[in-house]
Design a protein around this nucleic acid. Sequence first.
RNA 1: GCUGGCGUGGCGGAAUUGGCAGACGCACGGGACUUAAAAUCCCGUGAUGGUAACAUCGUACGGGUUCGACCCCCGUCGCCAGCACCA
Length: 803
Amino acid sequence: MAKAYHHQKIEQKWTEYWEKHPVNVDDGKKEKYYCLDMFPYPSGNGLHVGHWRGYVISDVWSRYKLMNGYYLIHPMGWDAFGLPAENYAIKNKIHPAVSTAENVKNIKRQINQIAAIYDWDREVNTTDPDFYKWTQWIFVQMFKKGLAYEKEMPINWCPSCKTGLANEEVVNGKCERCHSEVTKKNLKQWMLKITEYGDRLLDDLDRLDWPEKVKRMQTEWIGRSYGAEVEFPIDGRDEKITVYTTRPDTLYGATFMVLAPEHALAKSLATDETREAVEKYITDAANKSNVDRLQNKEKTGVFTGTYAINPMNQKKIPIWLSDYVLADYGTGAIMCVPAHDDRDFEFATQFNIPIIQVIAKDGKEIGHMTEAYTEASGTMINSGDWNGMESAVLKAEAPHIVEKMGIGRAKKNFKLRDWVFSRQRYWGEPIPIIHCPDCGNVAVPEEELPLTLPEVESYQPTGTGESPLAAIDSWVNCKCPQCGKDAKRETNTMPQWAGSSWYFLRYVDNKNDKELVSREKADKYLPVDMYIGGVEHAVLHLLYSRFYTKFLYDIGAIGFDEPFTKLFNQGMVTGKNGVKMSKSMGNVISPDDLVEKYGCDSLRLYELFVGPPELDSEWDDRGIEGVYRFLAKFWNLAQENMDRFIEPTEELTRLRHQLIHAITTRLNTFSLNTVVSGFMEFNNKLGELSRKGGIDKETVETFVVLLAPFAPHIAEELWQDLGHETSVFAEKWPEADEEAMAEDTKEIAVQVNGKLRATIRIKADATKEEAIAQGRDAVKDKLSGNIIKEIYVPGKIVNIVCK
RNA sequence: GCUGGCGUGGCGGAAUUGGCAGACGCACGGGACUUAAAAUCCCGUGAUGGUAACAUCGUACGGGUUCGACCCCCGUCGCCAGCACCA
């Protein structure tokens, strides 16, 4: 009786073996390969099968690279600052550090069930003072370079989380985390000047092997545009209003101007007649919530009573206020060309403002326009000297023309805003700044870092815009490091993104107490070759990390300026009907029971088999039975043949090489679901051959080697049973031999008039004439009329066209 | 509204990118083994007609290009994602 497949026994055995005999060792000669998972937040809920998927994908890829001769950097750590731990602390009066440590322990246990080859010596935790010392150090360097600055301004405020938010954290006017409606609050904030890196963040996307979708999202988020700033004199005053436009070619068509209600000149433009209405409009606009502004796009506005002069034709144009103009983009003021801009058209129609067409549409002046003509193509009309020019050409030249005229300049703009970096919460890195009445803002001296988070009695956020740290007098009051006078500490903390913006650097040198990473190790092991995680971070974490990396490159801390060479976004695993797994929906599937029942190897395979790795997949527990049966079948097949292997036949050798080829190409294109189906298909074929005449040892061995990255335990056990004393992971990934793969004959389809009528087996080297002759013969009773054409696509098809 | 992606059996999904549609798995049906069940193994399984060989239809819908279209082009519908007054 052959040995039976006991997954628990085997998996335990090899877990212990790998513990003692690690398979991934740095011999100093191998090339490195850095495969990184987005590190998890240690949630109290533990992992569900969706989290597993990403980790399985990265481990399969890592083990594949290992078998291709690389030394792997494949680390894991904890993104452990953040609100859930803090909210838990508020509710249960347990220090976040305590609950976090418990959660880490549990999730680490779960992650170990995956049997991924993580190098736990490299583990990092963003809440560890030895780690956040460097998070603070980076902030200090940014402060010294003027990239971290303090500013009071209306920022996005989540009334439920009671903290300010970055632009990136506001989704459809709601808090990214808790989905409460975001309001505006005027707060003094630390900001990071990410806009200074706008061009590089955009241009360098070209160099990255990332999904186009993510690149597109970042491109749109950064939102670079080219145009001109043009100055419009105010009628009867010495002042000018500067506007930004991407369509300076339409300058002659500007029939009015609109300022954001928050514009510095807004109030002063009112006349005695309009003052009351203007002031009311400004107040109303200030009270409008983000969601209001987003959902209600009907144009509102108020005429200031004042006019500007169109600098091209000296015509007087009315100045209006409207909240469709954003205060914090461009100059907060726009020139309006209703004939060629949808929004201006809507506004002009509503308020009866003249519309002047300046680009001919289809060579014509339309007269009464019913909609704006927004294309920059056509001949200029009603435009003085510019008449007759092509608008597309003029669009590019106009910025230089206005510059020469002394009324403006070429200008580029970004949608990207500086990063609001202060959080009014407890569980984050304290911002290492001291406010001195004489010296102003002074950085905490580097030798005093880390500035540790003090114990606090109440974690409750105050809601006033101050962090709970502000209540600790003994901590707040300090001496200025520069002049020694009484001073106060900054009490805001950093956002959760701070630690995750650079953690991947620390893994390669996590015990260094002199530098955040040594240049030697950074040069040797970085950057990350493959980064695997969900798409939800497309513009948050991934943009911030790129910014941090570029900054650290600029100050010479590291020698590369893009952190992640290749990115893979795995799809979500959902419950029935595509519903996201969540505690409240009650549809969370824990991997623990499945590992117990079917084993780690089966769950690993099923995580891949459930669907294409880049797409969302619905979890169905029943499907795991299928992969379990496959493993058990393969196991039995191997065991039964152990003492009766036959010599390799030509067919077996061919199949073996075809398998190598199929698995390798599918693996290289990340088609991991079809890798698994490929294994199953081949296993079925082997079963058949085994019943018919037997199978050879080499084929089974190759199968085991190929299966190893996917189902490592069963592969090791079978490898040992096949008589090997070293780990299967010491094996080199096999190569397919083209010649051995080739078949002497091939089955091809024969069509008549494009319809399948027969299949024939032809010699692989058959000539066109031979193939067609054979094909014609096979369908001779299905031909009617005269043959007018005969087509042969080598190795694929014969098609006979008759009429 | 704009941009991008997708639409294939009862279900999850394959199809070497223009060449035999539905691989593989689930589910279902039949059979073998068993006192019986479970497990396991074998066979079948897009629809319609036919005892059958076979024929016709079939990749959201309507058209087109081609010897040949799930794949390319034009139009329509539906779903998903991102952005959302950025001038």
